[in-house]
């Protein structure tokens, strides 16, 4: 099964609860630390996300994603640690490079924020089937066309990658070099990209026709083969999370007033 979706069905409760609940979780995980303005809130939420991912049996799949962003995060730490405008107190030195307490501290704040956002999104993305999420949106009056575009991207991009490799083969077969210096690659650009565009235009037209004759533009009220993904607990989650967000805001206001 070739799809670029990261979702895997592990059969846990996280796969069964409504996608909306998980979207609320993402919103809460981002807004609560921002509203409260304290670092420990972010740390707590990272721990919560990690616990959820562990429970959902997808913590391992989170690691490669974190590793990719880890490189960027490391750069942030180095640059801020060395060059942040408020740097005063040296913390440690690696050869000629001096790291300052203020910069490192500032960078840590950014790190916590980014890791928190990444991990809460992982909770949503790794445990939710994209089509379930879209179907739920369409049920709530979202445009089915937009929903289709969103979902089909997951399946059609891998198919396009395949077309792309056939095109590369076809042009290489005619003696075209595709590897080597920049000049070679630039020269290969048009012969590779033009057929990709033409064949996707042709395929898109054919697919549009095929969708059309299956009533894609029908104005009738849609029905759904699959039942809506939700559990009894979803109602409470979708009340509790907004309440927590409001509570965080209230807490911040009282802090501010006091």
């Amino acid at each position: 099964m070739k799809t670029i979706s990261l979702y895997v069905d592990k059969g846990t409760m996280l796969n069964k609860i409504a996608p909306e609940s998980k979207i609320w979780y993402v919103i809460a995980a981002i807004t609560i630390p921002a509203l409260m303005g304290t670092r420990w809130a972010g740390i707590v939420l990272i721990a919560v996300s990690a616990a959820l991912l562990l429970y959902g049996k997808v913590l391992k799949r989170t690691l490669p994603l974190l590793a990719v962003s880890g490189f960027v995060l490391l750069t942030v730490l180095i640059i801020q640690g060395m060059f942040w405008w408020g740097n005063e107190t040296p913390l440690f030195a690696l050869g000629p490079a001096v790291f300052y307490r203020e910069g490192v501290n500032y960078a840590l704040g950014i790190l916590i924020n980014i890791i928190n956002i990444l991990m809460s999104f992982c909770v949503l993305i790794l445990t939710t089937k994209p089509s379930d999420m879209m179907e739920n949106f369409v049920r709530r009056g979202f445009s089915p066309r937009f929903g289709y575009v969103f979902i089909s991207v997951f399946q059609i991009i891998p198919q396009m990658t395949e077309t792309m490799s056939t095109i590369t083969d076809a042009q290489r077969s005619r003696g075209m070099e595709t590897e080597g210096s920049l000049a070679v690659r630039i020269k290969a650009f048009i012969p590779l990209i033009a057929p990709v565009i033409m064949s996707s235009l042709i395929n898109t037209k054919e697919r549009a026709l095929a969708l059309e004759v299956r009533g894609f533009n029908s104005r009738k009220k849609k029905t759904f083969l699959n039942d809506e993904v939700k559990t009894a607990g979803d109602r409470y989650i979708q009340i509790a999370l907004p309440v927590l967000i409001i509570a965080a805001a209230v807490w911040r206001v009282t802090q501010w007033l006091a």
Partner: peptide, 13 residues
């Protein structure tokens, strides 16, 4: 060796 691919849209530009 020359090879004619199945789908001409994969090569024509």
């Amino acid at each position: 060796v020359g090879m004619v691919f199945q789908n001409p849209n994969d090569q024509i530009f």
